[in-house]
Protein backbone atom coordinates (compact mmCIF):
# COMPACT_ATOMS: atom_id res chain seq x y z
CA UNK A 1 0.00 0.00 0.00
CA UNK A 2 2.80 2.39 0.80
CA UNK A 3 3.92 2.07 -2.82
CA UNK A 4 0.78 3.75 -4.16
CA UNK A 5 2.10 7.30 -4.06
CA UNK A 6 5.50 6.45 -5.62
CA UNK A 7 3.85 4.37 -8.35
CA UNK A 8 1.39 7.12 -9.18
CA UNK A 9 4.25 9.61 -9.27
CA UNK A 10 6.22 7.44 -11.69
CA UNK A 11 3.16 6.98 -13.90
CA UNK A 12 2.52 10.74 -13.84
CA UNK A 13 6.13 11.43 -14.82
CA UNK A 14 5.83 9.00 -17.74
CA UNK A 15 2.62 10.72 -18.90
CA UNK A 16 4.22 14.16 -18.67
CA UNK A 17 7.25 12.96 -20.66
CA UNK A 18 4.91 11.45 -23.21
CA UNK A 19 2.98 14.69 -23.65
CA UNK A 20 6.23 16.61 -23.86
CA UNK A 21 7.47 14.26 -26.59
CA UNK A 22 4.29 14.63 -28.63
CA UNK A 23 5.09 18.25 -29.55
CA UNK A 24 8.55 17.76 -31.17
CA UNK A 25 7.52 14.41 -32.70
CA UNK A 26 4.61 15.94 -34.59
CA UNK A 27 5.97 19.46 -35.01
CA UNK A 28 7.26 18.88 -38.54
CA UNK A 29 3.84 17.82 -39.69
CA UNK A 30 2.21 20.88 -38.08
CA UNK A 31 4.75 23.21 -39.70
CA UNK A 32 4.14 21.65 -43.10
CA UNK A 33 0.41 22.07 -42.62
CA UNK A 34 0.91 25.72 -41.70
CA UNK A 35 3.27 26.35 -44.62
CA UNK A 36 0.72 24.91 -47.01
CA UNK A 37 -2.00 27.12 -45.58
CA UNK A 38 0.52 30.00 -45.50
CA UNK A 39 -0.18 30.93 -41.92
CA UNK A 40 2.19 31.60 -39.06
CA UNK A 41 2.09 29.06 -36.30
CA UNK A 42 2.05 30.38 -32.74
CA UNK A 43 3.29 28.09 -30.03
CA UNK A 44 -0.18 27.47 -28.62
CA UNK A 45 -1.41 26.59 -32.12
CA UNK A 46 1.53 24.25 -32.49
CA UNK A 47 0.70 22.49 -29.24
CA UNK A 48 -2.96 22.26 -30.11
CA UNK A 49 -2.26 20.85 -33.56
CA UNK A 50 0.35 18.34 -32.49
CA UNK A 51 -2.05 17.02 -29.86
CA UNK A 52 -4.87 16.45 -32.32
CA UNK A 53 -3.20 15.30 -35.53
CA UNK A 54 -5.02 12.71 -37.60
CA UNK A 55 -2.10 10.41 -38.24
CA UNK A 56 0.47 11.62 -35.74
CA UNK A 57 3.93 10.11 -35.50
CA UNK A 58 3.25 9.93 -31.79
CA UNK A 59 -0.36 10.26 -30.67
CA UNK A 60 -1.06 12.03 -27.40
CA UNK A 61 -2.23 9.80 -24.53
CA UNK A 62 -5.73 11.25 -24.59
CA UNK A 63 -6.04 10.44 -28.30
CA UNK A 64 -5.26 6.82 -27.54
CA UNK A 65 -7.76 6.75 -24.69
CA UNK A 66 -10.47 8.31 -26.86
CA UNK A 67 -9.76 5.80 -29.63
CA UNK A 68 -9.92 2.95 -27.13
CA UNK A 69 -13.26 4.21 -25.89
CA UNK A 70 -14.62 4.79 -29.39
CA UNK A 71 -13.54 1.44 -30.74
CA UNK A 72 -14.95 -0.50 -27.80
CA UNK A 73 -17.95 0.88 -25.97
CA UNK A 74 -19.06 3.47 -28.55
CA UNK A 75 -18.65 1.11 -31.49
CA UNK A 76 -20.75 -1.60 -29.89
CA UNK A 77 -23.42 0.76 -28.58
CA UNK A 78 -23.92 3.08 -31.55
CA UNK A 79 -21.97 1.60 -34.49
CA UNK A 80 -23.78 0.28 -37.57
CA UNK A 81 -22.31 -3.18 -37.01
CA UNK A 82 -22.31 -2.92 -33.22
CA UNK A 83 -23.82 -5.22 -30.66
CA UNK A 84 -26.92 -3.06 -30.19
CA UNK A 85 -27.75 -2.82 -33.89
CA UNK A 86 -26.92 -6.34 -35.02
CA UNK A 87 -26.76 -8.47 -31.91
CA UNK A 88 -23.20 -9.55 -32.72
CA UNK A 89 -19.86 -7.95 -31.98
CA UNK A 90 -18.72 -5.44 -34.59
CA UNK A 91 -15.65 -6.47 -36.55
CA UNK A 92 -14.47 -2.92 -36.20
CA UNK A 93 -14.40 -3.00 -32.45
CA UNK A 94 -11.46 -3.87 -30.27
CA UNK A 95 -13.75 -5.99 -28.12
CA UNK A 96 -14.20 -8.31 -31.09
CA UNK A 97 -10.51 -8.36 -32.02
CA UNK A 98 -9.49 -8.63 -28.41
CA UNK A 99 -11.78 -11.60 -27.94
CA UNK A 100 -10.36 -13.33 -31.03
CA UNK A 101 -6.88 -13.00 -29.58
CA UNK A 102 -7.93 -13.78 -26.03
CA UNK A 103 -9.77 -16.98 -26.91
CA UNK A 104 -6.77 -18.35 -28.80
CA UNK A 105 -4.52 -17.31 -25.94
CA UNK A 106 -6.63 -19.01 -23.29
CA UNK A 107 -7.11 -22.26 -25.23
CA UNK A 108 -3.39 -22.45 -25.95
CA UNK A 109 -2.46 -21.49 -22.43
CA UNK A 110 -4.73 -24.19 -21.01
CA UNK A 111 -3.26 -26.88 -23.25
CA UNK A 112 0.32 -25.73 -22.72
CA UNK A 113 -0.05 -25.58 -18.95
CA UNK A 114 -1.69 -29.00 -18.71
CA UNK A 115 0.97 -30.65 -20.88
CA UNK A 116 3.71 -28.77 -19.06
CA UNK A 117 2.55 -30.02 -15.67
CA UNK A 118 2.27 -33.57 -17.00
CA UNK A 119 5.79 -33.51 -18.40
CA UNK A 120 7.14 -32.02 -15.18
CA UNK A 121 5.54 -34.81 -13.17
CA UNK A 122 7.11 -37.33 -15.54
CA UNK A 123 10.52 -35.69 -15.28
CA UNK A 124 10.47 -35.67 -11.50
CA UNK A 125 9.45 -39.31 -11.26
CA UNK A 126 11.46 -40.84 -14.06
CA UNK A 127 15.20 -40.54 -14.13
CA UNK A 128 15.45 -41.34 -17.83
CA UNK A 129 13.13 -38.45 -18.68
CA UNK A 130 14.98 -36.19 -16.28
CA UNK A 131 18.31 -36.98 -17.89
CA UNK A 132 17.18 -36.89 -21.51
CA UNK A 133 14.29 -34.41 -21.77
CA UNK A 134 15.14 -31.84 -19.11
CA UNK A 135 18.29 -30.46 -20.79
CA UNK A 136 16.27 -29.83 -23.94
CA UNK A 137 13.46 -28.18 -21.99
CA UNK A 138 16.00 -25.80 -20.47
CA UNK A 139 17.80 -25.21 -23.76
CA UNK A 140 14.53 -24.48 -25.53
CA UNK A 141 14.06 -21.48 -23.26
CA UNK A 142 17.12 -19.87 -24.80
CA UNK A 143 16.04 -20.11 -28.43
CA UNK A 144 13.57 -17.78 -30.13
CA UNK A 145 10.72 -20.28 -30.58
CA UNK A 146 8.46 -17.47 -31.69
CA UNK A 147 10.26 -17.55 -35.04
CA UNK A 148 8.41 -20.69 -36.07
CA UNK A 149 5.00 -19.08 -35.55
CA UNK A 150 4.47 -18.03 -39.19
CA UNK A 151 5.39 -21.51 -40.37
CA UNK A 152 2.97 -23.26 -38.05
CA UNK A 153 0.17 -20.96 -39.21
CA UNK A 154 0.87 -21.41 -42.92
CA UNK A 155 1.43 -25.17 -42.75
CA UNK A 156 -1.71 -25.76 -40.74
CA UNK A 157 -3.62 -23.54 -43.16
CA UNK A 158 -2.28 -25.68 -45.99
CA UNK A 159 -3.73 -28.81 -44.42
CA UNK A 160 -7.03 -27.07 -43.81
CA UNK A 161 -6.73 -26.10 -40.17
CA UNK A 162 -7.49 -22.41 -39.77
CA UNK A 163 -8.83 -19.97 -37.23
CA UNK A 164 -8.26 -20.44 -33.54
CA UNK A 165 -6.41 -23.76 -33.44
CA UNK A 166 -3.10 -22.78 -35.13
CA UNK A 167 -2.75 -19.72 -32.92
CA UNK A 168 -3.65 -21.77 -29.87
CA UNK A 169 -0.91 -24.24 -30.79
CA UNK A 170 1.67 -21.45 -30.84
CA UNK A 171 0.34 -20.13 -27.53
CA UNK A 172 0.47 -23.61 -26.05
CA UNK A 173 4.02 -24.08 -27.26
CA UNK A 174 5.18 -20.81 -25.74
CA UNK A 175 3.56 -21.39 -22.35
CA UNK A 176 4.64 -25.04 -22.23
CA UNK A 177 8.34 -24.64 -21.44
CA UNK A 178 8.14 -22.04 -18.66
CA UNK A 179 5.60 -24.29 -16.95
CA UNK A 180 7.79 -27.39 -17.33
CA UNK A 181 10.88 -25.70 -15.93
CA UNK A 182 8.99 -23.95 -13.13
CA UNK A 183 7.08 -27.06 -12.12
CA UNK A 184 10.15 -29.29 -12.10
CA UNK A 185 11.82 -27.00 -9.58
CA UNK A 186 8.53 -26.73 -7.70
CA UNK A 187 8.05 -30.47 -7.43
CA UNK A 188 11.67 -30.75 -6.33
CA UNK A 189 11.27 -27.98 -3.75
CA UNK A 190 10.73 -30.31 -0.75
CA UNK A 191 14.08 -30.81 0.92
CA UNK A 192 15.65 -34.11 1.90
CA UNK A 193 14.33 -33.86 5.46
CA UNK A 194 10.73 -33.53 4.35
CA UNK A 195 11.14 -36.43 1.94
CA UNK A 196 12.73 -38.51 4.67
CA UNK A 197 9.78 -37.77 6.93
CA UNK A 198 7.39 -39.12 4.28
CA UNK A 199 9.68 -42.10 3.96
CA UNK A 200 9.39 -42.83 7.71
CA UNK A 201 5.60 -42.91 7.23
CA UNK A 202 6.19 -45.50 4.51
CA UNK A 203 4.32 -43.26 2.07
CA UNK A 204 4.21 -44.44 -1.53
CA UNK A 205 5.05 -42.28 -4.54
CA UNK A 206 1.49 -41.16 -5.07
CA UNK A 207 1.11 -40.12 -1.44
CA UNK A 208 4.41 -38.26 -1.52
CA UNK A 209 3.23 -36.50 -4.66
CA UNK A 210 -0.22 -35.60 -3.35
CA UNK A 211 0.76 -34.65 0.20
CA UNK A 212 4.18 -33.11 -0.30
CA UNK A 213 5.39 -32.42 -3.82
CA UNK A 214 2.20 -30.98 -5.27
CA UNK A 215 1.47 -28.58 -2.39
CA UNK A 216 5.09 -27.41 -2.33
CA UNK A 217 5.00 -26.71 -6.05
CA UNK A 218 1.97 -24.41 -5.97
CA UNK A 219 3.91 -21.14 -5.50
CA UNK A 220 6.19 -22.17 -8.38
CA UNK A 221 3.16 -23.04 -10.50
CA UNK A 222 1.69 -19.57 -10.13
CA UNK A 223 5.00 -17.91 -10.91
CA UNK A 224 5.31 -19.89 -14.14
CA UNK A 225 1.64 -19.32 -15.00
CA UNK A 226 2.28 -15.58 -14.98
CA UNK A 227 5.23 -15.99 -17.33
CA UNK A 228 3.27 -18.49 -19.43
CA UNK A 229 0.17 -16.36 -19.94
CA UNK A 230 2.24 -13.37 -21.06
CA UNK A 231 4.11 -15.61 -23.51
CA UNK A 232 0.82 -17.13 -24.72
CA UNK A 233 -0.61 -13.72 -25.51
CA UNK A 234 2.48 -12.74 -27.48
CA UNK A 235 2.27 -16.05 -29.33
CA UNK A 236 -1.37 -15.44 -30.30
CA UNK A 237 -0.63 -11.89 -31.46
CA UNK A 238 2.35 -12.94 -33.57
CA UNK A 239 0.28 -15.87 -34.87
CA UNK A 240 -2.16 -13.38 -36.34
CA UNK A 241 0.45 -11.66 -38.48
CA UNK A 242 1.03 -14.11 -41.39
CA UNK A 243 -2.64 -14.70 -42.21
CA UNK A 244 -2.91 -11.22 -43.67
CA UNK A 245 -4.60 -9.16 -41.02
CA UNK A 246 -7.97 -10.87 -40.75
CA UNK A 247 -8.90 -10.60 -37.11
CA UNK A 248 -7.32 -10.16 -33.73
CA UNK A 249 -5.10 -7.59 -32.08
CA UNK A 250 -2.09 -8.68 -34.13
CA UNK A 251 -4.10 -8.08 -37.28
CA UNK A 252 -5.04 -4.61 -36.02
CA UNK A 253 -1.37 -3.84 -35.45
CA UNK A 254 -0.46 -5.04 -38.92
CA UNK A 255 -3.26 -3.26 -40.78
CA UNK A 256 -2.53 -0.13 -38.78
CA UNK A 257 1.05 -0.25 -39.94
CA UNK A 258 0.00 -0.88 -43.58
CA UNK A 259 -2.24 2.19 -43.67
CA UNK A 260 -0.24 4.41 -41.36
CA UNK A 261 -3.06 4.50 -38.80
CA UNK A 262 -0.88 5.26 -35.82
CA UNK A 263 -3.72 5.81 -33.41
CA UNK A 264 -5.11 2.40 -34.35
CA UNK A 265 -1.71 0.79 -33.69
CA UNK A 266 -1.42 2.45 -30.32
CA UNK A 267 -4.93 1.54 -29.27
CA UNK A 268 -4.41 -2.08 -30.32
CA UNK A 269 -1.14 -2.08 -28.39
CA UNK A 270 -2.88 -0.73 -25.32
CA UNK A 271 -5.69 -3.23 -25.69
CA UNK A 272 -3.06 -5.98 -25.73
CA UNK A 273 -1.39 -4.44 -22.69
CA UNK A 274 -4.70 -4.29 -20.85
CA UNK A 275 -5.37 -7.95 -21.70
CA UNK A 276 -1.93 -9.00 -20.51
CA UNK A 277 -2.19 -6.98 -17.33
CA UNK A 278 -5.69 -8.26 -16.68
CA UNK A 279 -4.72 -11.90 -17.07
CA UNK A 280 -1.57 -11.54 -14.97
CA UNK A 281 -3.64 -9.76 -12.32
CA UNK A 282 -6.25 -12.54 -12.38
CA UNK A 283 -3.57 -15.16 -11.87
CA UNK A 284 -2.09 -13.03 -9.12
CA UNK A 285 -5.50 -12.92 -7.44
CA UNK A 286 -5.92 -16.68 -7.77
CA UNK A 287 -2.43 -17.06 -6.33
CA UNK A 288 -3.26 -14.90 -3.34
CA UNK A 289 -6.51 -16.75 -2.62
CA UNK A 290 -4.98 -20.19 -3.06
CA UNK A 291 -1.88 -19.52 -1.02
CA UNK A 292 -3.96 -17.95 1.72
CA UNK A 293 -6.18 -21.01 1.84
CA UNK A 294 -3.16 -23.29 1.95
CA UNK A 295 -1.74 -21.15 4.75
CA UNK A 296 1.39 -20.28 2.79
CA UNK A 297 0.79 -16.56 3.09
CA UNK A 298 0.02 -14.32 6.05
Amino acid sequence: MRSVVPVLTVVAVILVLWYAAVIPMNAQWAYDQAARAEVDLSFSDLVAQTMSADRPRLPAPHQVVVELWNSTVMEELTGRFGLVETGTLSNRSLIYHGWVTLSATLVGFGIGTALGILLAVGIVHNRAMDRSVMPWAIASQTIPILAIAPMIIVVLNAVGITGLIPKAIISAYLSFFPVVVGMVSGLRAPDAMQLDLMHTYNANRWEIFAKLRWPSSVPFLFASLKVGIAASLIGAIVGELPTGAVAGLGARLLSGSYYGQTIQIWSALFAAAILAAGMVALIGLAQRITLKRMGMMQ
Binding site: A230, I234, L253, I265, A276, V280
Partner: peptide
Protein backbone atom coordinates in the same frame (compact mmCIF):
# COMPACT_ATOMS: atom_id res chain seq x y z
CA UNK B 1 7.99 -6.34 -18.43
CA UNK B 2 4.86 -8.54 -18.71
CA UNK B 3 3.40 -6.55 -21.62
CA UNK B 4 3.65 -7.64 -25.27
CA UNK B 5 6.29 -5.05 -26.17
CA UNK B 6 7.00 -6.77 -29.52
CA UNK B 7 3.81 -5.00 -30.56
CA UNK B 8 5.69 -1.72 -30.69
CA UNK B 9 7.44 -3.01 -33.82
CA UNK B 10 5.14 -1.23 -36.32
CA UNK B 11 5.60 2.04 -34.43
Amino acid sequence: AALPIVGTAPI
